[in-house]
Lab assay of single mutants.
Amino acid sequence: RLRTTITPEQLEILYQKYLLDSNPTRKMLDHIAHEVGLKKRVVQVWFQNTRARERK
C-alpha cells in the first residue's frame, strides 16, 4: 500500500484543527476529512500520530 502524501496546505488545516481539539469526535473527523480532501481513516491516524508525538 502506498503512503498518503499530505500537502502543506492540508497539514496547515490539520494543525489548526488539532489546536482546537486534539481528540475529535467521529463527526468532526468526517468534517475535517471532507474539508482537507483525505479519507477519514488517514485523518484519524494523523491525529493519533500527532498525539503520540506530543507525548514524547
Rank of each mutant, 00 (worst) to 15 (best):
R1V: 14
R1N: 15
R1C: 14
L2Y: 14
L2M: 07
L2E: 13
L2T: 14
L2H: 11
L2C: 04
R3M: 15
R3F: 12
T4P: 13
T4H: 05
T4V: 09
T4K: 06
T5I: 08
T5M: 14
T5L: 08
I6P: 08
I6L: 12
I6R: 01
I6Q: 02
I6A: 06
I6N: 02
I6Y: 12
T7S: 08
T7W: 02
T7L: 07
T7V: 02
P8Q: 05
P8M: 15
P8A: 15
P8D: 09
P8F: 15
P8C: 15
E9L: 06
E9V: 07
E9C: 02
E9M: 06
E9I: 07
E9P: 06
Q10W: 01
Q10V: 06
L11K: 08
L11P: 04
L11F: 05
E12F: 06
E12R: 08
E12L: 08
I13M: 07
I13R: 09
I13H: 12
I13P: 00
L14V: 00
L14A: 00
L14F: 00
Y15K: 12
Y15E: 14
Y15G: 13
Y15M: 10
Y15T: 11
Q16V: 15
Q16S: 07
Q16W: 03
Q16D: 07
Q16T: 11
Q16P: 00
Q16N: 07
K17V: 04
K17M: 13
K17L: 06
Y18V: 03
Y18M: 05
Y18P: 01
Y18H: 00
Y18E: 00
Y18G: 01
Y18A: 00
L19M: 12
L19A: 10
L19G: 08
L19E: 07
L20H: 06
L20T: 10
L20C: 11
L20N: 06
D21W: 02
D21Q: 07
D21S: 05
D21V: 05
D21M: 07
D21F: 05
S22Q: 12
N23A: 07
N23C: 03
N23K: 05
N23V: 05
N23W: 08
P24Q: 05
P24C: 00
P24Y: 03
P24R: 01
P24T: 00
P24N: 03
P24H: 02
P24F: 03
P24I: 02
T25M: 07
T25F: 03
T25P: 08
T25V: 05
T25Q: 04
T25A: 07
T25E: 09
T25Y: 00
R26K: 13
R26T: 14
R26I: 15
R26Y: 10
R26S: 15
R26F: 12
R26M: 14
R26V: 15
K27W: 04
K27M: 08
K27E: 14
K27N: 07
K27A: 11
K27F: 06
M28T: 09
L29F: 12
L29V: 10
L29H: 02
L29Q: 07
L29M: 12
D30E: 06
D30P: 03
D30Q: 13
D30C: 04
D30Y: 06
H31V: 13
H31P: 01
H31T: 14
I32F: 09
I32V: 10
I32L: 09
I32S: 02
I32R: 00
I32C: 02
A33R: 01
A33Y: 01
A33S: 10
A33C: 09
H34S: 11
H34D: 12
H34R: 10
H34W: 09
H34Q: 11
E35S: 07
E35Q: 11
E35I: 10
E35W: 04
V36E: 00
V36K: 00
V36P: 00
G37A: 05
G37Q: 08
G37L: 01
L38K: 02
L38M: 11
L38Y: 00
L38R: 01
L38W: 02
L38H: 02
L38N: 00
K39V: 11
K39W: 02
K39M: 13
K39N: 08
K39Y: 09
K39Q: 13
K40A: 13
K40R: 10
K40L: 14
K40C: 08
K40N: 14
V42N: 11
V42H: 06
V42W: 10
V42I: 10
V42P: 00
V42Y: 11
V43C: 05
V43H: 00
V43P: 02
Q44H: 10
Q44Y: 09
Q44L: 05
Q44D: 15
Q44C: 08
Q44V: 08
Q44N: 11
V45T: 07
V45S: 05
V45L: 13
V45G: 07
W46P: 01
W46I: 00
W46D: 01
W46T: 01
W46S: 01
F47H: 00
F47S: 00
F47C: 00
F47E: 02
F47L: 03
Q48A: 13
Q48E: 15
Q48D: 15
Q48P: 03
Q48L: 06
Q48K: 12
Q48M: 05
N49F: 03
N49I: 06
N49Y: 07
N49A: 08
N49L: 05
N49C: 04
N49D: 13
N49R: 06
T50C: 10
T50W: 08
T50M: 12
R51M: 12
R51G: 08
R51A: 13
R51C: 10
R51L: 12
A52F: 04
A52H: 08
A52G: 10
R53C: 12
R53K: 10
R53F: 14
R53N: 13
R53P: 06
R53D: 14
R53M: 09
E54I: 08
E54Y: 04
E54R: 02
E54T: 05
E54W: 04
R55S: 15
R55A: 14
R55E: 14
R55C: 14
R55F: 11
R55G: 14
K56Q: 12
